[in-house]
Nucleic acid binder design. Structure first.
Lengths: 95, 95
DNA sequence: GACCGATATGGCTATTTGGTAAAATAGGAA
DNA sequence: TTCCTATTTTACCAAATAGCCATATCGGTC
């Protein structure tokens, strides 16, 4: 059985990205920095749900956050995420 | 609630990639075409498990297959998958 | 101090996923 | 046809995930 932690670690990051709402969040954060309530408004889900999605992305190291008073602003840490988008679009085309 | 099927479709493809064994398979298939039993030997898991992983990748349009006698050979359809790898490695570095 | 707005966390249920073993399928050889 | 080998599918169980509600937490204001 392969037990290379390289693939385990990659899978953690990929899993964090592999959710429609989180892909949408990443797309938004690529253009701008947003606070949780702004994202919540765009998404239309429960605040706790949005907060949880953001925490998944943060733990994976995909987004970062800074606190301003009682608001928390999130931003994309690695713009290369767009390359992933491009690849997925490429695969979609071939289907 | 956002209901853009664009993100749903992307998530399906990402989810298909987001598993250590499947990342390993993709990595192998990027170098070569392999049949199921060869991959099974490399991975060391149950044959049915490997077959299931391959079927997940195939349904997502990531790999293709051709049958030669009673063997099925799989190959990567879209080499851009490597870009995804690069991005994940990039994110790992910042962690 | 108490209160309020913004976020995060814990608990619960429903759904999905991953793995194995057993049965089914498909093609070639005896 | 029967046997054999490679692969897929089915059935089942354990574990992980997503969503919502209720409950913290944390800063600033009154």
């Amino acid at each position: 059985m392969i037990s290379d932690s390289k693939y385990e670690q990659m899978a953690i990051i990929m899993k964090a990205m592999a959710h429609p709402t989180r892909l949408y969040i990443m797309d938004q954060l690529n253009e701008n920095e947003y606070c949780v309530c702004e994202l919540q408004e765009k998404i239309g889900a429960d605040m706790s749900t949005v907060s949880k999605h953001l925490s998944v992305l943060k733990h994976a190291g995909i987004v970062g956050s800074r606190k301003v008073n009682n608001q928390v602003f999130y931003k994309l840490l690695c713009p290369c995420v767009l390359d992933v988008y491009k690849c997925v679009v490429e695969i979609k085309k071939t289907n």
